[in-house]
Amino acid sequence: MTQHSRTAGLLRRVVTTTAVALVASALVVGCGGADSDPAAAPEKSAAPTPKETLLAAVPDEEDGAFRFAGRDSEATLSGLVDPAAKGMELTHSVKDAELGFTTRMTFRIVSEQVWMKVRFTGTKGLTGLPKLPERWLKLDRARLTDAASAPVWEGPDVGNTGPLIEAATTVEEQGAGKYAGTIDLTAGNAAEVLEAEETRALGASAKAVPFTAQVGPDGNLTRLTLQVPAAGKRKAYPYVVEYRDHGSAPKVTAPTGAAAQDAPKIAYEMLNG
């Protein structure tokens, strides 16, 4: 999702649903010779490749609530994901380089509904900032100029780790739960993880971008780091996604009662620029 100045496009979803099918091939091992009985031969499943193991570790709809964090060259996001509720909470903070104040914006999404909470800090001596209620502000997408930019529930893999791993051209296991390899950022849905201009600027190097990944003892992906090389005027930077606290993180629920209200006109004026 591209959020302009509201929330950065760090954790854009590139597909509505990422389906990962891991098919284990069965090897029939015979004893050889004319008297061997194929029907009685034992069957063994092929061990999953490192890439298959990583894909299986990507969050899916069966997971319990978990926390996530992510960052790229321009932004940092953190929050919660609750697949059972089709809910997530995204928090983004950005400091104004010129005036020095910080805007902390949080979106809460439950299915098709979205709420927003905004807080400004470091504003001493400043005037003109919008005065918003401190409650959760329920947004009407029809009143947003760019409704498509507002976050929606599109699946639990908010960091796009599935499309990235699917585009991996090499994956090696480097120890218990540790993996490394290269990803082709021009392939499939991985091509949409970065902005198109940035991918074009990377040129041939976009086809073999190094990455590392970590899978926890519970089989869940805990971290993926993509080392994006320098391109044009942009310096090299890490694209990082972290997932943790699977099954123990707080659930995401719709704010109710005095904790929420409909967003006032000034909230839409801020969002619509």
Rank of each mutant, 00 (worst) to 15 (best):
residue 2 T to P: 07
residue 3 Q to H: 13
residue 4 H to W: 14
residue 6 R to W: 14
residue 8 A to C: 05
residue 10 L to V: 13
residue 15 V to Y: 08
residue 16 T to W: 12
residue 22 L to Y: 11
residue 22 L to E: 09
residue 23 V to K: 10
residue 23 V to C: 10
residue 29 V to I: 15
residue 36 S to K: 11
residue 36 S to H: 15
residue 38 P to V: 11
residue 40 A to F: 04
residue 42 P to W: 10
residue 47 A to N: 06
residue 50 P to F: 04
residue 55 L to S: 03
residue 58 V to L: 03
residue 59 P to M: 13
residue 60 D to Y: 01
residue 63 D to L: 02
residue 65 A to L: 08
residue 66 F to V: 05
residue 71 R to Q: 11
residue 75 A to C: 07
residue 75 A to T: 11
residue 76 T to K: 09
residue 79 G to M: 03
residue 83 P to Y: 08
residue 87 G to I: 08
residue 87 G to W: 05
residue 91 T to P: 00
residue 91 T to G: 01
residue 92 H to E: 14
residue 93 S to Y: 00
residue 98 E to H: 05
residue 99 L to E: 14
residue 99 L to A: 09
residue 100 G to L: 04
residue 101 F to E: 00
residue 101 F to D: 00
residue 103 T to K: 03
residue 104 R to A: 12
residue 104 R to G: 02
residue 104 R to P: 01
residue 106 T to I: 03
residue 106 T to N: 01
residue 106 T to K: 03
residue 107 F to G: 03
residue 108 R to C: 05
residue 108 R to L: 09
residue 111 S to F: 13
residue 113 Q to D: 15
residue 114 V to W: 00
residue 115 W to R: 00
residue 116 M to S: 12
residue 117 K to D: 03
residue 117 K to T: 09
residue 118 V to M: 05
residue 122 G to Q: 02
residue 125 G to M: 08
residue 126 L to V: 10
residue 127 T to D: 12
residue 128 G to W: 04
residue 131 K to P: 09
residue 132 L to V: 04
residue 135 R to S: 10
residue 136 W to Q: 00
residue 141 R to S: 07
residue 142 A to H: 02
residue 144 L to K: 12
residue 150 A to V: 08
residue 151 P to M: 02
residue 151 P to W: 03
residue 152 V to L: 14
residue 154 E to K: 15
residue 156 P to Q: 03
residue 156 P to E: 00
residue 162 G to M: 09
residue 164 L to N: 03
residue 168 A to V: 03
residue 168 A to W: 01
residue 168 A to T: 06
residue 168 A to H: 02
residue 172 E to R: 13
residue 172 E to A: 15
residue 173 E to T: 04
residue 178 K to H: 15
residue 180 A to M: 08
residue 183 I to F: 00
residue 183 I to G: 00
residue 184 D to S: 09
residue 185 L to T: 06
residue 191 A to P: 06
residue 193 V to M: 05
residue 193 V to K: 07
residue 197 E to K: 07
residue 197 E to V: 08
residue 197 E to T: 06
residue 197 E to I: 08
residue 206 A to T: 08
residue 206 A to S: 11
residue 207 K to F: 12
residue 210 P to R: 06
residue 218 D to N: 10
residue 218 D to I: 11
residue 219 G to D: 07
residue 220 N to V: 05
residue 223 R to Q: 12
residue 223 R to D: 08
residue 224 L to T: 04
residue 225 T to R: 13
residue 229 P to W: 12
residue 231 A to M: 06
residue 233 K to P: 10
residue 233 K to W: 01
residue 238 P to D: 10
residue 241 V to D: 06
residue 246 H to Y: 15
residue 250 P to I: 01
residue 251 K to W: 05
residue 253 T to L: 02
residue 253 T to W: 03
residue 254 A to D: 13
residue 260 A to R: 04
residue 261 Q to F: 02
residue 263 A to G: 05
residue 263 A to S: 10
